[in-house]
Design a protein around this nucleic acid. Structure first.
Lengths: 196, 196
DNA sequence: CTAAATATAGTACAAATGTACTAATAAATA
DNA sequence: TATTTATTAGTACATTTGTACTATATTTAG
């Protein structure tokens, strides 16, 4: 799975066949199909590994006090994990089109995350770190934008030929996280100062 | 090309072979390869058709006075055109990985659009419709976010199983365009009211 | 009307891919 | 140690796909 992950990240899902993986591991194709009857199984296993990793790191986070840095930490954590499994992002559409199980799971996760995020936003508004909503669905839409940006900035950067150096990652993290800034109150902005 | 576009949009680039297209047109595969020597040629032709369409609609737009509605119009125009050629968005990574010509063109377009957009932002700031930047690269980052959202909201919506109804499109247009709202001055917000 | 061009159909071919199958080898267990 | 189980290698097969090739048919032009 490690080898497959590296190859998928490097070349993209479609460009990596069972034989490619087997060759890279210096085992026979037959051996590989013994452990993973279907190619989909490897991909699926990697997807659920990714999900588990996000879950695990989420559990580790300090949710006792919801402050602005929690949002930072969440976005950063997701950035790092998505980066590790970036082929999933890059080929997400194909993946989901071909794998109903993953699709179902993904849709459920999105829904769950959305309600969690809305909870955090509400809390931050109560604490006067975020300003109250001025438009209909304003924070729902904000969440959706963060969601899309989080999922696709890697793809977008790769498309423009950027290598995934630390500098690239930092720059893009900043680009994503700045979406929060104009919703901050003065109190929120002071906290922002401390965080950046 | 019409048939190919429809099939690509419907099933995704990878799922549509030359034979699929030929069958759907009720012509022979040989006939198709006579007109398009390579499958890539069809895809490439569609990409440049898309580019031309964006260009054309851009020319048609009234650029004489830069106001907030120009930004609305631009985003709406791009939304519609991208929707028409949505397979390009959906499979953009594959496309760009496999076609250096398209990649080169895309990277150049992004760069050009960025400087155009920055010009518009500057103008709107001068007109006190947008507030001045408070952070480093604030409007550059805003542009990049709009860029990514514009490119990928369709993909994201499709991944969640949404059909591309008018309602979906409208909802997502609102979601994208609202990213501008918190940067507006009071004057800008009054203009926003008139537009929505 | 005839010749040249364009268009179409049908088929063939090589390459790649997922996967199934068989035989041999290594490891575990009783 | 003997035997059962797990692992590995190697190969075979069916399918798909892009594309090339050839022979007709149709259209265009002189």
């Amino acid at each position: 799975m490690d080898t497959a992950l590296n190859l998928f990240n490097e070349k993209g899902l479609a460009q990596v066949s069972l034989r490619t993986i087997a060759e890279s591991m210096r085992i026979s194709p037959g051996n590989l199909t013994y452990h993973f009857k279907k190619r989909e199984e490897i991909v699926e296993a990697l997807y659920y590994e990714f999900v588990a990793e996000v879950e695990e790191r989420f559990e580790e986070m300090n949710l006792s006090e919801i402050k602005l840095n929690l949002v930072f930490d969440l976005i950063l954590m997701l950035t790092e994990t998505r980066l590790k499994y970036r082929f999933l992002m890059r080929d997400f559409t194909t993946l989901i089109a071909e794998n109903p199980s993953i699709k179902k799971h993904y849709v459920a996760v999105i829904k769950k995350r959305k309600s969690q995020s809305m909870g955090i936003f509400d809390h931050l508004i109560e604490q006067k770190i975020l300003r109250p909503a001025e438009l209909e669905n304003e924070y729902e839409h904000l969440y959706e934008r963060i969601q899309i940006l989080g999922n696709f900035w890697i793809t977008s950067a790769l498309m423009q030929g950027n290598k995934m150096t630390n500098a690239t990652v930092e720059r893009n993290f900043e680009m994503v996280v700045q979406i929060m800034y104009p919703y901050l109150t003065n109190k929120g902005k002071r906290e922002w100062e401390r965080l950046t």
